[in-house]
Amino acid sequence: MKLKSHLMLDSKKRSGILLLVVIFCGCWIFYFWSSRNKTSIEPNAEIAIYQARIDSLKRIKSVKSIPKIYPFNPNFITDYKGYTLGLSTEELDKLFSFRQKEKWINSAEDFQEVTGVSDSLLAVISPYFKFPDWVTNSKTSQTTKSFSFKSFNPQNDLNKATFESLISLPEMTEGSARLILAYRKKIGGFIEDNQLYDIYNVKRNQVIEVKKEFTVKSKPVIVLINVNTANASDLATIPFLTFDIARSIIDYRILNEGIKNLDELLKIDGITPYKLDRIKLYLSTNQ
């Protein structure tokens, strides 16, 4: 009976105990809710920080992965070089087909005409085009050769001949006239009349008719390429010199400690006396 009396509570005590239990449960619920909220926020903040770092590293890597463009001769673009420049396969095929005909690109306009690249892409890559000195005439330190007029010759100037004046000649066709004008543009102007014989698909009798009416009077100023210092790309821009022959010239130059006389080039495979006569028009030894 005495033990039972201790467990007997009046209504006020029961209400107080109930209130205390409610307060305790509320504190317990608030504690676990705030702890869970805190743990869910902190990882999200850490993830955001790490993600920002990853994005920053990706941006740095993408910038570094963009290839740097160095000056180059557009006549010697490879498949990989064309890919890095943004040229399509079709545009590269047009360039390779043009070069296989032993034709040369001498300006940004020629490059666009041959490949068909867009104006926007041309504007990006054309500032890096590097043409040989004899095309651009930009280096004044090299030996220059100037030619005088043949005032005694009554013929018309071959370097000023027009399409209309050429097709008016006997035996001349429109196709051959265009080939003559295209070759004149390619080499920067005729230096001597016999260069007409170098034009592929122009017949001998057509050349004879041209030489009756025209001759070279206003010869261009030629910046001679020094055979002892030029690289293979510059040598390969000279008529009749392929890139392989240019490499052979450099190898011969290294083995013999320089080239003292241009006639030594006859020792190189692929160079004949006929070709040497033309090559001499654009080379010097500076000896």
Rank of each mutant, 00 (worst) to 15 (best):
L122A: 01
R184T: 02
Q287L: 15
S176Y: 04
A177Y: 02
P239H: 09
S15C: 09
I222P: 08
S126P: 03
L57N: 00
Y200W: 09
F98G: 04
S56Q: 06
F190T: 03
D133M: 08
I77K: 06
V117T: 13
D193T: 08
Q51M: 11
D277L: 10
N286P: 04
N159W: 10
S168Q: 10
K13M: 12
L158H: 00
F240Q: 14
F30P: 05
K64I: 14
V117M: 14
E91S: 11
T78S: 12
I199H: 01
Y83V: 04
D193N: 15
I167R: 04
D157M: 01
L181V: 01
I125H: 00
N228V: 02
P127Y: 02
I271H: 00
L3V: 10
T39H: 05
I23A: 09
S141K: 15
K150L: 15
M8C: 10
Y183M: 01
K217W: 02
L235V: 09
K13S: 10
S88Y: 09
S146C: 13
R36S: 11
S5I: 05
I23S: 06
D55A: 07
I66C: 02
G270M: 02
G189I: 05
I191C: 14
E164M: 04
D79P: 10
F149L: 15
I23D: 08
Q287Y: 14
K38T: 07
L224M: 08
A108N: 06
E164V: 04
N261Q: 12
D277E: 15
R204T: 11
I49W: 12
V202C: 07
K94Y: 07
L121C: 00
L265Q: 01
I225P: 00
F190H: 00
I60V: 07
L281M: 14
V227L: 11
D193Y: 07
P74R: 01
L262C: 08
T285I: 11
Q142L: 14
F243T: 11
L19V: 09
A108H: 03
L9V: 05
R36E: 12
Q51N: 10
R14F: 10
S284D: 07
T39Y: 12
I66P: 00
S5Q: 10
I180K: 03
I105K: 02
D55T: 04
L181H: 00
I250N: 11
K160L: 13
G86M: 07
G175F: 07
L235D: 02
S151C: 06
C25A: 13
E91D: 06
L87K: 04
R36M: 13
I225M: 08
L179G: 02
F147Q: 15
L158S: 00
T162I: 00
I54R: 06
D55Y: 03
N75G: 04
G86K: 03
P43M: 09
D193L: 13
I180M: 02
F147Y: 15
S5E: 08
S141I: 13
F32C: 01
S56N: 05
K12P: 05
L7W: 12
N231G: 12
F240A: 13
F214G: 01
D55N: 10
Q155G: 03
C27A: 11
I17G: 01
R184Y: 07
E213A: 15
Y70A: 12
D269K: 08
R178M: 07
F152W: 14
T162N: 03
I271Q: 03
A108R: 07
